[in-house]
């Protein structure tokens, strides 16, 4: 297990470095939230999802929907690393005549299961997928990542009611609680607390983890056995991994300038390609 954690940690550093390069080069936004959920995505794609079935678009494949679509650069890098599409395509991220937009588009590249980006949509879509699995007696599981700010949207709570009413225990939602939304800290803009109790009141099975602790993420996702849908509240840090950029709303919007890029690169050392 220790080796596995080391390997995943190394992979997360590689992915972070590539995200930094892509965001800097394309002058795009959202590096903060891409870094807050990257460890979760890595555990999902490297340890939990049946990736080969996803690649072959098998009807029995697990489904992953990135509801907080603005963090999609992290997903693109991971999909590319896993061979869903080649690096040339990855390098066209957010550029003229490229295939990878700033929010995921269904059908743009393999592995993107739904078009997202407008907040509050992905959970309903994931619930529809999970219900279909139940109706068709299929064993696949459905996963989605939502943001904490996204929980402002009423449609999240419509879907939350729906999922428990239909006992969608094949549905897992990971809530990337990085504490920021568009205009400030979630606690200042529209308080969500007590978040755990809210989801429990909606009759979800709720776990709380450190969203950057690979072992905790893995343990929360592996061998899920519950009669209810599962919500994992992952406490994360906006722009985790680059200390001078961590926990600052500015990095929801800005891309690093050249000097900032060089300074950020120092965090990765020579071993990370």
């Amino acid at each position: 297990m220790k080796n596995k954690i080391n390997k995943l940690t190394f992979t997360s550093m590689e992915v972070r470095k590539k995200i930094l390069e892509l965001i800097t080069k394309s002058k795009s936004s959202h590096i903060g939230c891409a870094y807050s959920l990257v460890d979760i995505l890595i555990v999902l794609f490297y340890e939990i999802l049946n990736v080969n079935k996803i690649k072959s678009v098998s009807p029995d494949r697990d489904r992953f929907v990135l509801s907080k679509g603005h963090a999609c650069v992290a997903l693109y890098v991971i999909l590319s690393k896993l061979g869903f599409f080649n690096k040339k395509i990855l390098n066209t991220y957010y550029s003229n005549n490229g295939r990878l937009a700033g929010h995921p588009v269904f059908g743009s590249v393999p592995g993107i299961e739904a078009s997202t980006g407008s907040l509050g949509h992905g959970l309903s879509i994931a619930a529809g997928m999970a219900l279909s699995a139940k109706l068709d007696n299929k064993k696949y599981s459905v996963y989605t990542i939502i943001g904490d700010g996204e929980c402002d949207e009423g449609s999240i709570w419509e879907a939350a009611l729906f999922a428990t009413h239909h006992k969608l225990n094949n549905l897992t939602v990971i809530l990337d609680k990085n504490g920021f939304q568009g205009y400030g800290r979630t606690s200042d803009v529209l308080s969500l607390e007590p978040l755990r109790r809210k989801w429990e009141a909606f009759n979800w099975n709720v776990k709380e983890i450190d969203g950057h602790n690979i072992l905790q993420i893995y343990n929360s996702l592996a061998n899920i056995k519950s009669k209810k849908p599962l919500l994992i509240i992952a406490k994360t840090v906006h722009c985790k991994g680059i200390p001078f950029m961590e926990d600052s709303l500015m990095w929801h919007y800005r891309s690093p300038k050249e000097d900032e890029f060089k300074k950020a690169l120092c965090n990765f050392g020579d071993k990370i390609k």
Binding site: R63, S124, I125, G128, L131, S132, D136, E158, L161
Partner: peptide, 19 residues
């Protein structure tokens, strides 16, 4: 239930699963 937004989203998920 009385949740049109969720109905449309759920139907999208079901359509993506062959319904």
């Amino acid at each position: 239930g009385i949740s049109e937004a969720n109905m449309v989203g759920v139907s999208a998920g079901m359509a993506l699963s062959g319904k």
